[in-house]
Amino acid sequence: AVSDRLIGRKSVVMEAISPQNSGLVKVDGETWRATSGTVLDVGEEVSVKAIEGVKLVVEKLE
C-alpha cells in the first residue's frame, strides 16, 4: 500500500503534537495528521512509526 512506504520515513512537525491532540507533519512534501505519545514542537524531526486509519503515529528522532 502507498501508506506502507511512509513507515520509517523522516518527517518534520508542522503543527505541534501532544498525547491529547493530534498535529500535522510533512512527509515527502505531503502533509499528514499525526499523533504521538509525547509532546512534539513545530520544526522537530520525527520518524513515522505506524499508521492508524488516516493518521500517522510518529516519535522524535534520537
Rank of each mutant, 00 (worst) to 15 (best):
residue 14 M to Y: 08
residue 35 T to M: 09
residue 58 V to R: 00
residue 4 D to P: 10
residue 10 K to Y: 08
residue 19 P to S: 06
residue 25 V to H: 01
residue 2 V to T: 12
residue 6 L to P: 03
residue 32 W to G: 08
residue 31 T to E: 13
residue 33 R to Y: 14
residue 56 L to H: 04
residue 9 R to D: 02
residue 12 V to Y: 07
residue 43 G to D: 05
residue 23 G to V: 02
residue 53 G to N: 05
residue 8 G to Q: 01
residue 25 V to T: 03
residue 39 V to E: 11
residue 59 E to P: 01
residue 34 A to H: 02
residue 4 D to Q: 13
residue 19 P to M: 05
residue 30 E to M: 08
residue 21 N to D: 08
residue 61 L to W: 13
residue 1 A to C: 14
residue 30 E to T: 07
residue 58 V to A: 00
residue 33 R to H: 14
residue 51 I to L: 07
residue 8 G to A: 02
residue 47 S to G: 07
residue 59 E to H: 06
residue 26 K to Q: 12
residue 23 G to F: 02
residue 44 E to M: 12
residue 32 W to T: 08
residue 30 E to A: 07
residue 58 V to L: 01
residue 25 V to G: 01
residue 26 K to W: 14
residue 59 E to Y: 01
residue 53 G to F: 02
residue 61 L to H: 08
residue 13 V to L: 02
residue 9 R to E: 05
residue 8 G to H: 04
residue 55 K to Q: 14
residue 37 G to D: 15
residue 45 E to T: 13
residue 6 L to M: 08
residue 41 D to T: 11
residue 16 A to P: 10
residue 3 S to R: 12
residue 52 E to A: 10
residue 62 E to Y: 11
residue 6 L to S: 03
residue 29 G to F: 04
residue 44 E to Y: 05
residue 60 K to D: 04
residue 32 W to Q: 09
residue 36 S to M: 02
residue 22 S to L: 10
residue 48 V to H: 00
residue 52 E to P: 02
residue 61 L to I: 13
residue 23 G to Q: 00
residue 4 D to I: 12
residue 34 A to V: 05
residue 58 V to S: 01
residue 44 E to D: 10
residue 35 T to E: 09
residue 61 L to N: 07
residue 22 S to N: 10
residue 45 E to A: 09
residue 52 E to I: 13
residue 22 S to T: 13
residue 6 L to E: 02
residue 11 S to R: 00
residue 47 S to Q: 14
residue 42 V to Y: 05
residue 34 A to C: 08
residue 28 D to I: 03
residue 59 E to N: 04
residue 11 S to K: 01
residue 32 W to H: 14
residue 17 I to A: 02
residue 45 E to P: 07
residue 8 G to R: 01
residue 46 V to S: 03
residue 29 G to N: 10
residue 23 G to K: 00
residue 21 N to E: 10
residue 3 S to C: 12
residue 51 I to K: 05
residue 22 S to E: 15
residue 28 D to E: 08
residue 36 S to F: 00
residue 4 D to R: 12
residue 36 S to C: 07
residue 22 S to W: 08
residue 5 R to F: 08
residue 46 V to K: 01
residue 54 V to A: 14
residue 54 V to E: 15
residue 58 V to E: 03
residue 14 M to G: 02
residue 16 A to M: 11
residue 33 R to C: 14
residue 2 V to A: 13
residue 27 V to L: 12
residue 18 S to H: 07
residue 61 L to G: 07
residue 8 G to I: 01
residue 16 A to D: 04
residue 2 V to S: 12
residue 46 V to D: 01
residue 9 R to Q: 09
residue 45 E to N: 08
residue 27 V to H: 02
residue 30 E to S: 06
residue 36 S to A: 12
residue 56 L to N: 02
residue 28 D to A: 07
residue 52 E to S: 10
residue 23 G to W: 03
residue 42 V to C: 09
residue 18 S to T: 13
residue 16 A to K: 14
residue 46 V to W: 00
residue 57 V to Q: 06
residue 20 Q to G: 14
residue 13 V to C: 01
residue 36 S to W: 00
residue 29 G to C: 12
residue 35 T to I: 14
residue 10 K to M: 13
residue 8 G to E: 04
residue 60 K to Q: 07
residue 46 V to A: 15
residue 56 L to T: 03
residue 31 T to C: 15
residue 58 V to N: 03
residue 9 R to N: 05
